[in-house]
Design a protein around this nucleic acid. Structure first.
Lengths: 346, 346
DNA sequence: GTCGGGCTTGTAAACGATTACAAGAACGAT
DNA sequence: ATCGTTCTTGTAATCGTTTACAAGCCCGAC
């Protein structure tokens, strides 16, 4: 009844456990030996126990991908890319969710003792001393998809948010928009900070001033909707000021909104529609991540492709390489963005 | 340099490995013993090896959730629910993707030898003899979120698609729609077959005939868009017929479309917009699954809630119960649907 | 004072694989 | 015929835990 072990197979085949193991691992053996073992294996339906195997060989053949929110479509893109690379290398991918708090991430990395997986690929929203420390001390190789200080000495693959932001602003400006607003996620997150900085720089490069800036509580659709009214209210007060000052065209109601990710952008579009404003005629909207949601949303969302698929792929490759050789110098890869233009911009 | 083992801790604390193990597992020990072990553990930063532990105790404390497509938002809902239940019970959740083919599912179940996880929760798109057989023979408990024959003797949690379909049709009829079309996913899948049947029954219950039926290659957004023209073409030919026949109001261009899931529904909405038709004024659209996408889409999508969160929760509970007691009689739970009305219907 | 009972702790045998090492078989060359 | 080489196979140690069992200790009761 109980599952057969290698000893059972050996007994059934009338050979030693070592021989069974050898046949199963493709080591040289005689025709007849292979034949006998194979028959016994088939007959008993034997499958090697992964636990025992990994205890002995010191590897689990599992890799963990930790993301903050499975509901964020950007992780779908990334996950697909990671999955492809790691499964080609013979690993199983384990996906876990950390939630938005850095303490959860630290706990995950700490608890990531050897034995659960052979490597960890983490995309942290917030980074602090503790997290960096726990990553350095982690017993298994860790690759970060995101931005951690170079001195952490860890492999990283990150996006170039400022450049991406510039692409978005370039595009909007080329289409004649000058009153550009920004809906960020939490500014105390790594991507939030990077995008805030990028937005400011990009506007400066065009000699523009932000039409409005708001900050959502989270990188989610709901938070985007919730924060949008603040953006809309600030529009209103801008409008008031315009009427008083009759200023240049850089004042007045924003004619474009850039959101820090696609979920927020879609949230904004809903609120714009609720306010009776048309996209892109009245207000153009640009998202970031170029996730599947960008093409599914209506109108389809112009979005900055921050290379999530490529980041996933490169990060997975880095992880595999480090598992191979833990002494190699840490690499820091930056993936360049591109812009996917769709109908939410003119 | 290398990771400390329980033997190292024992040496450092000047006690036996058994004592260390006992302290770590909370078995009775003297104050002083606990103290010494604890200090040694802290000092060395010892963490038990999960592999060795699970080899000995025969459990991995991991549960696997296998879904067909991580990009389908319905699985996000389900995954969240499952995660909550299993992590409360002290298990880690491993999510894997099977792809749309039944052979992949069979391979997954077969390869699910004890040692990778303590249980499997699978939501198969297609079910055949082989799959049922592999599930019955699987060494770890398996719970199916979906419909498999009762004779398979396996715990299942499934949705009530026909009832859900009826809710959708009831709603559309109540709003005065009579020319109802249906965009299904592949009819050779379990949900595809159930929904086709449900749609036919629901229309019959209202003495209506289908305005049009089309079948997408997949339950994805892209497949939905690709299949929509077929639906639209059939609309056109219907329209032609109407012009010729001046028939009753059950003929003519569909004034409502029900899609077999939210992704397909959103795909249809895109094509409707491209054809210059307004939702819901010209055509009402109803999706199924009531996933996050339903509220994110524009207009927000009326969708049949097939209870994915509850299904996930119940399935996880069933799995935990079966792990507890593998002899209990298999249960077959059916979760009742409800309708989430949004603005894609009048 | 001795003996039995209850605790605490240590010794050693698992769990199910892989693999170093040694022994045995086969075979060609001298 | 004997020796050495090579190839195959088996024996046993090992990975890092848990846990059954035994041994030792302290204590109170007779």
């Amino acid at each position: 009844m109980s599952r057969p072990t290698i000893a059972g197979v050996a007994r059934a085949a009338g050979v030693s456990v070592a021989s069974v193991s050898r046949v199963l691992n493709g080591l040289p053996a005689t025709e007849e030996m292979v034949e006998r073992v194979q028959r016994a294996v088939d007959e008993l339906g034997y499958v090697p126990d992964a636990r025992a195997r990994s205890l002995k060989v010191g590897r689990t053949f599992q890799l963990t991908l930790a993301v903050a929110d499975v509901g964020n479509p950007v992780y779908v893109t990334m996950m697909r890319a990671v999955e492809e690379v790691v499964s080609a290398a013979g690993y199983r991918l384990v996906v876990t969710t950390t939630g938005p708090d850095v303490v959860d991430e630290v706990a995950l990395v700490r608890g990531m003792a050897r034995g659960y997986a052979d490597g960890l690929l983490i995309s942290p929203l917030r980074v602090d001393e503790d997290l960096v420390k726990s990553i350095r001390e982690c017993e298994v190789p860790v690759v970060v998809a995101g931005n951690v200080p170079a001195k952490a000495g860890v492999d990283t693959v990150r996006a170039n948010s400022p450049k991406g932001m510039l692409l978005a602003v370039d595009h909007l400006v080329a289409k004649g928009r000058r009153r550009i607003a920004f809906l960020n996620g939490p500014a105390d997150t790594v991507p939030g900070a990077a995008r805030a900085k990028g937005f400011a720089e990009a506007l400066r490069a065009h000699d523009l001033r932000p039409a409005a800036v708001a900050e959502a509580d989270d990188f989610t659709f709901a938070a985007g909707r919730a924060a949008a009214p603040a953006l809309l209210n600030s529009l209103t007060s801008e409008e008031v000021r315009v009427r008083v000052a009759t200023s240049s065209d850089v004042r007045g109601r924003p004619d474009a909104v850039i959101a820090a990710n696609d979920l927020l952008a879609v949230g904004v579009m809903h609120e714009l529609a609720a306010a009776g404003l048309e996209v892109p005629a009245d207000v153009a909207v640009v998202g970031m991540d170029d996730s599947e949601l960008a093409e599914q949303s209506f109108p389809p969302l112009t979005s900055v492709n921050l290379g999530s698929a490529e980041r996933g792929r490169r990060a997975a490759e880095l992880l595999l390489a480090r598992i191979e050789d833990n002494e190699r110098a840490p690499r820091r890869i930056v993936v360049q963005p591109s812009l996917s233009i769709r109908r939410s911009t003119p």
